[in-house]
């Protein structure tokens, strides 16, 4: 069987690279310039929100009052990268909806109680990640199965609360914790069921 048509010629290889480079540079410049003038363009520089910045948050953590809850404040002195945040698995909206329909996961809302009352995923427990000392005794007794799948969420990609809550739970020995990165804004926008008030 003649498969010579799958083998690039030497001249073609050089030409391919030079042409690809021209296209790459042109597309990159065009994209950046277009983004600067496009009304829906995005900021190219990543700036963490001051109020929810993980490093500030870790510094503000106090020792845990709840027995058995080893607060991650012990890691305050460690560099943030030690937390290996990118190793926390993430779940998309589709994955969250599947788990919601099948009731196969516990949802933890890492936002403040006021925000939780305004609306949350039905069945989600409020575990405000900026006040773990208060919420750990309320929520952890309900999470007795450490292999139970747990999904944390907060305000979406602009907030670190869900990520840090997930990391803290993993630190406590919970083995199946994931983050819904789109969070509440994505869930609400999709038109899926919502629950208001203090009740999960």
């Amino acid at each position: 069987m003649d498969l010579s048509f799958l083998s690039p010629k030497k001249l073609s290889r050089r030409k391919s690279l030079s042409e690809a480079w021209v296209l790459f540079v042109f597309a990159t410049f065009f994209a950046v310039i277009f983004n600067a003038f496009y009304p829906y363009g995005i900021a190219l520089k990543v700036e963490a929100p001051k109020s929810h910045h993980l490093q500030d948050f870790l510094k503000a953590l106090k020792p845990a009052a709840y027995p058995g809850w080893k607060n991650t404040s012990a890691k305050t002195a460690s560099p943030v990268q030690d937390l290996e945040l990118d190793q926390v698995p993430r779940v998309s909206l589709v994955g969250v909806k599947n788990r919601f329909d099948q009731k196969s996961a516990v949802f933890l809302d890492a936002r403040s109680p006021d925000e939780y009352k305004e609306g949350h995923i039905p069945g989600a427990l409020n575990f405000y990640a900026e006040d773990m000392d208060k919420f750990a005794p309320l929520v952890l007794p309900q999470l007795t199965n450490k292999s139970q799948e747990i999904i944390t969420y907060c305000h979406g990609s602009s907030c670190d609360l869900s990520l840090h809550l997930a990391q803290s739970l993993i630190g406590q020995g919970y083995t199946n914790v994931k983050v819904f990165f789109g969070g509440w804004p994505e869930w609400k926008k999709s038109g899926y069921p919502i629950q208001t008030g203090e009740q999960p």
Binding site: L23, F26, A27, T28, A31, V32, F34, N35, G41, I42
Partner: peptide, 9 residues
């Protein structure tokens, strides 16, 4: 920002 335009061009 770049990938969509890369795909387009």
């Amino acid at each position: 920002v770049v990938i969509p335009w890369m795909e387009f061009f």
